[in-house]
Design a protein around this nucleic acid. Structure first.
Lengths: 190, 190, 190, 190
DNA sequence: CCTTAATCGAGACGGTACGTCGTGTCTTTAT
DNA sequence: ATAAAGACACGACGTACCGTCTCGATTAAGG
């Protein structure tokens, strides 16, 4: 297991260093001070390795910060997503978009995990807002939850990292808050 | 130019046949009955070629169909997007998400064009709805326009093609219509 | 080493089949049931591969046949040279004449080996003749030894294979024997 | 014809600059300030072009210098041959050894011309020696004539240019003079 | 003098081989 | 048994030339 951890770290480091497209199995093995054998014993290919490394990396979840308002919590959440995308995780997302894992079901799960962890954060934010009485429980649907993760991820795929703060605020104010029935704050005077 | 057209057609055909990941320059050249030289004379690599082929393919725009209501028009629009994604275009989207073109600015433009053409369709739908008085002009923002293309594209990237009709309807009813201030129809009894 | 042997055999077979100019690395690799990588791991290019294959092929030396007279022995020797030239070895000679190996010193050695093995055969013939008392030890110089191999090789380069027997006899009777001080036999009545 | 001359000069210049193996039709055309069309209109390929250029170059024959003795004349002759080989002509010889022209008969003639012009020089030297009474007319055979050109050319092919003067002297003293029945001078004390 | 044909330069084209790189399998050596 | 190390078969990459071709521009000869 210590080997597995070293491989994951090497994978993430290479993702960050050269990106998904130029990441090589040889390179990962070398950085992890092991041989390709050890990689192929565990994962059938590059895409599977990257998927595993990323799932491992997003596993450690801290509680989303509580700012007192749904808007503040959402801004905090999208900021976390945007920050993660600006690194190894983002590169993995690009790779998983393009390539197929050996097992189709595994592919589905890996792609799901790209936004899944972010979904859970947003869901927590919404639950808090319902408890606070800021939004109605009925307005919380899977689509409403997924909205923020998807839009931020798309922004990354289309325009790269880092995502400007203004875009994050727009996503929260012009899309997410209206969908859950909260009036966005008046735009600041330009 | 006749050669260029043949290359584009070969590229799209191969995208459809084997997908982006297994598309090869040799393969495209062979199908277009030309040599690799002619490809590299025009584009520096596979990603650039695919980007050009796709931009060429999405260029021919028909007018979005007018069903009489914003909901009908939106459903028609997302269906067109979903249909395009289930083919060469979709495969190109995957490739462009993962790979970088030779020129960064060109990369940005290519990625923009992935949803740009769909944006224009949705914008037309919204303009009609404003004229009909279904929605307020103020509720039409770039984010509102981009919403449908992004969500459909994400659905494709995450779950593959074809996208179920129910998902398309959900995107329209639960996200887009609320954001532009239209009450969605009551859910049909299951 | 078993792989190396297979590569040499494939190289010689292709030399014989298509000649030096149309021998390709791909072709050799395919015939040897290996990949180009394995070729380039060992030799920097086509010329080096062919040089190595030829040196390997001429390495197995049988004792020059002993006919009892210097003239008979020389005729046997030039016949062996001529026979070798009419095959893979001859094609390699053409290639080595025109192309340069990666390493200049290696080039010199490879070109030397083209006639070197034949020199050694002729030297043995001369030693026997000295022991028999047919020729004086003083008349055996490096130039006298090299004479036959060079003339036969030139005949091949200029007029191709197979070299007519009459030409071989002329080389022995009109050039080599006079140089070592043996009167050639009177020309057969035409 | 002025164009033809320019092409020949460009060919010889490129032979001298980069050697036969790396000479390209594009390169010659560019240096001659013409297009490839003009080359292929006249010669079917690189080997034919080089053969023609070389035949053109060796055409201008000066009378072999008369030093008063056969040995001096022979030394002068082999020096001329060695000098020519150390340049474009030598590179062409390498090419013609390896490659085949479009027309086999043409190939034969081209290869013949490599040593043919030198043969004629040596023949003249021998005629003079016969007139002087240095050698017997009977000892002048085609093989005796060809000996010097072949040995010098081989020395070039095997060891490259420039050929050391000592080797040229050895060829004359140890091989050619003995064959025509002239006792070579005693070796100089080292 | 004009025009009709030929030749030229320039370079795109279809194709073959090059030499390199990465993949995923397999073998070897050493625990 | 498992791990490191790396050789191996394979296939795609992007480049260089080949020999063919098309295309204007220029030149030359003939009406």
């Amino acid at each position: 297991m210590v080997l597995e951890r070293a491989i994951f770290e090497a994978t993430l480091a290479d993702l960050e260093a050269v990106g998904y497209a130029r990441l090589t199995m040889d390179g990962v093995a070398h950085r992890a001070r092991t041989g390709k054998t050890s990689l192929y014993l565990r994962w059938p290919g590059k895409a599977d390795l990257v998927a595993a490394a990323v799932e491992h990396a997003v596993a450690d979840q801290s509680e989303p910060s509580d700012t007192g308002t749904i808007r503040g919590d959402l801004l905090a959440a999208v900021t976390v997503i945007a920050t993660r995308l600006d690194g190894a995780f983002g590169e993995a997302v690009r790779g998983l978009a393009a390539e197929t894992l050996a097992d189709p079901e595994r592919t589905r799960r890996a792609r799901e995990s790209v936004v899944g962890w972010a979904d859970r954060r947003v869901a927590t934010v919404f639950e808090r807002a319902v408890r606070r009485g800021e939004i109605a429980a009925a307005s919380v649907s899977p689509w409403a939850i997924r909205l923020a993760p998807v839009l931020v991820t798309h922004e990354y795929l289309a325009h790269g990292a880092p995502i400007p703060e203004a875009a994050l605020a727009d996503i929260v104010d012009q899309v997410v808050l209206p969908v859950v029935g909260v009036a966005p704050p008046p735009p600041a005077a330009a």
